[in-house]
């Protein structure tokens, strides 16, 4: 029983990341009709926002103490990070919570990157075939990836979770099972975080006038244009929003997976599969498929399952994608008439 629960938990946090990336992909596809292969790179950029923020916080002043020496005989250096020197306790707090705090940096940065990307590149590819869109964004993804590699190196850079959440939680206690089901706190937080972001995006689209116009534009862009609304500008904002969602997903994922320059590509391939399984253009489908595939993947990596079907843990997602694509032309929740062929 708790083994199964554990796998569900395992799947939910990974599924959360898939769902957030897939949500952005679908949003962009549904509004702009663009297949964005650089979306994984945005996720990676978000993660590197966290790295940069952490580096900024770690900038420190070095004072050499002339009297004392270290055990190795060199002069004792007293290092104090500037934030601690300037902000005292709050600085220390900020330092501990650098990962969640870097969301504050990531949101404006990703918004700007997203809007620049849309205005500068994607806009010119609306009328081009999907193959061209895939190719140019694939090229862009390579460029972003290599630039990051140049500045941050090729090795993964671990980011610690805030100390308060560094340990494990006994989830079993919630179900009256006592001290079972030890599970890292941060992964639980990630799960709730992704649910919250997904909820926020849906609320934005569902309950605000702005979101209503965007949804109307997704259905019939031309008519919305006839009504005198500058739908183009709204879609640009939607692209920025998708970039922000991918970015914060990347920020919060850093304690789970140390970011490196190719993490975006790794996630992108899977997220594309998620989008297609959920149904191109269906936001709910993307989210549901994200969690579903996350859970399926963690179940497939259980030893019991692996002993029956060896190797299943490596291919389960692709296998599901193949089966879904061949049996359900629109994916699980695809809208009728959107990209059926």
């Amino acid at each position: 029983m708790d083994a199964i629960l554990l796998q569900v938990l395992n799947g939910l946090d990974k599924g959360g990341a898939y769902a957030l990336i897939a949500l952005g992909l679908t949003l962009v596809f549904g509004t702009l009709g663009v297949v964005n292969f650089a979306h994984g790179a945005l996720f990676m950029l978000g993660a590197f926002c966290a790295v940069t923020f952490d580096k900024l916080l770690k900038l420190e002043s070095v004072v050499v103490d002339p009297e004392k020496t270290t055990a190795w005989g060199s002069k004792l250096e007293i290092r104090t990070p500037y934030v601690e020197a300037w902000l005292g306790d709050f600085g220390r707090f900020l330092h501990d919570y650098s990962v969640p705090a870097s969301i504050l940096l990531a949101i404006p940065v990703m918004l700007v990157i997203g809007i620049v990307m849309e205005r500068g590149l994607i806009r010119h590819f609306y009328k081009r075939p999907h193959a061209d869109q895939i190719l140019v964004t694939f090229g862009l993804a390579i460029v972003i990836q290599e630039v990051i590699k140049h500045f941050f190196g090729a090795n993964p850079i671990p980011q610690p979770a805030p100390p308060a959440f560094a340990g494990t939680a006994y989830v079993g206690a919630l179900f009256g099972m006592g001290q079972t089901l030890a599970y890292p706190w941060w992964r639980i937080i990630y799960m709730f975080f992704s649910l919250a972001v997904i909820g926020a995006v849906f609320a934005f689209l569902q309950f605000t006038t702005y979101g209503m116009v965007v949804r109307a534009g997704m259905h019939d862009r031309q008519t919305v244009g006839f009504l005198g609304i500058d739908i183009q500008r709204r879609f640009t904002v939607v692209f920025g929003l998708a970039a922000v969602v991918a970015g914060v997903a990347g920020v919060m994922y850093t304690p789970i997976l140390p970011p490196d320059y190719h993490m975006g590509m790794d996630f992108l391939v899977l997220s594309f599969v998620v989008v297609v399984v959920g149904g191109m253009g269906s936001l709910g489908g993307a989210v549901a498929a994200g969690f579903l595939l996350g859970i399926l993947q963690s179940f497939a990596s259980m030893n019991e399952v692996k002993s029956i079907v060896p190797g299943i843990d490596h291919i389960i997602i692709y296998l599901v994608a193949v089966v879904v694509l061949l049996t359900l032309p629109r994916g699980l929740f695809g809208r009728k008439g959107v990209m059926e062929e």
Binding site: H130, V273, V276, H314, I315, A321, V322, L325, E341
Partner: peptide, 17 residues
Amino acid sequence: KRSGIYFSILTLAFAQM
């Protein structure tokens, strides 16, 4: 059995498998 982007994803899925 499929075309367009679905074909791309299917071939990608097989190759990754």
